[in-house]
Design a protein around this nucleic acid. Structure first.
Lengths: 240, 240
DNA sequence: CGGCATTATTGTCAACATGACGATAAGTAC
DNA sequence: GTACTTATCGTCATGTTGACAATAATGCCG
């Protein structure tokens, strides 16, 4: 790796997080409003500088917790990719490592008046973003769509237990399609290593009560480890 | 993104490259022998520091070119992921952005006696590696296997034109499986947007001559752009 | 040249997966 | 109860996959 004698260049390194959730059938992304230049007043992805002695995922989790006021983040956090360092910040070269959070809907605390306010925005109506965050968001959406096809991570958008219909709503929101409830039910319950039955749902929902499911043990993250589990065969999104 | 007043930490940033190729039916990886501490004498992935004003892919390509003596790299280069910065280099925190090159076999120039010698090693017999490069190699192999399933990038291991059998040899080497030549032929030639016929192969090879193919236009990288093309339906590797 | 070994390519067939959609089940709202 | 709503099961035609037979087109060897 290193071999050259001149002192290596050093770069400021940030982590950004594309946090996605599904609220009333729509895919939402968490954004903050910038209070300082550059891009003051614009929306941006939550994130911040990596501190000495921190690892990337750690930093991403910390920044997200700080900016949402949420102690323990729900859902699944993974690295998306790195961008830069050239020409993405007008103040100079900054390398950013983008991350992706797939999470059930969680409330964002109101920030103090001097803090950047984080809030959920439907991805369909996201206005212009600061820096190269539009591109990062694009990549994140594509990654999320792909993840749903071949991994059990659609369930990361749901709570511990969920109905097939709730899971289907996730797929529909992320993919932006409608899926046949009957075929989806067959496929989701029929894929080995994906779901496991739990109890019963009664609630006051209209219609027949639905069975509750949870992730099968093989598909659950073990001790913080990401889950390499794979949906086989995959649950492919319709392409025309 | 940035908001804190204290000057942000700066990190040395390196790029490492996992360059893969197939030589006589075996998957090989390009490694260099380290000439300096730490890990002097050990094998490591080629790589080096990102320079000011460089982008990541650019730096990865430059380092690889420098360490192999090859001017124009063949194949497909993409970002794999970032590692660190905590505790992966005994000299201190270093962030590394790993890359993946899928390339046809190319000869590596002999380095001078004071330069680190790069050479191909069969992945099946790679000894201990420096730093966290074993983990990076693992991730790269998994990524390569997955890429072959749902992208046309298997062809990146072949030259411009190739036979179905050569392409199959790539799949077999990367996946470490044998595939039925007849079924593979049907699938490869039958997948829309994957292959396109070229001319004829005669050569002195034993057996019936094979037709030559090239990547279909939709699957070819356009102006350096990565090709988001997708194999649909995917060419799934056998899992038991 | 004729036969043999070798690889390529085309078919066939049963098992399985998918998309479209009908029919039933089991609740809530009135 | 009746109407409405959602869940779940079933059916059927079509497409895909894995196993494997058959044929095609060469080089090699005597």
């Amino acid at each position: 790796m290193p071999e050259s004698h001149p002192a290596p260049e050093r770069f400021p390194v940030t982590v950004d997080v594309v946090a996605l959730t599904v609220r009333d059938g729509e895919l939402n992304v968490l954004l903050i409003t910038r209070l300082i230049e550059p891009f003051r007043g614009k929306l941006a992805l939550p994130g911040g500088f990596v501190l000495a002695g921190e690892d990337l995922l750690e930093a991403a989790g910390r920044e997200l917790a700080e900016e949402t006021g949420v102690e323990h983040l729900p859902g699944h956090l993974e690295q998306l990719g790195s961008y830069g360092p050239k020409g993405r910040d007008p103040r100079g070269d900054v390398l950013t490592v983008a991350h992706l959070l797939l999470a059930p809907d969680f409330p964002v605390l109101a920030a103090g008046s001097d803090a950047e306010q984080a809030a959920w925005y439907p991805v369909a109506e996201v206005p212009e973003l600061a820096f190269d965050h539009a591109r990062i968001l694009d990549d994140a959406l594509e990654r999320a769509k792909a993840k749903l096809e071949y991994s059990p991570l659609g369930a990361a958008f749901c709570g511990e237990e969920f109905t097939i219909a709730q899971l289907r709503a996730v797929y529909e929101a992320v993919w932006g399609t409608r899926l046949d409830p009957r075929n989806f039910h067959r496929k989701a319950t029929g894929t080995p290593g994906f779901l496991e039955e739990a109890g019963r749902m009664t609630t006051g929902d209209a219609g027949r009560p639905a069975a509750l499911f949870r992730l099968a043990p093989e598909a659950r993250p073990t001790a913080g480890q990401p889950t390499r589990a794979v949906l086989n065969p995959p649950l492919m999104r319709p392409r025309d």
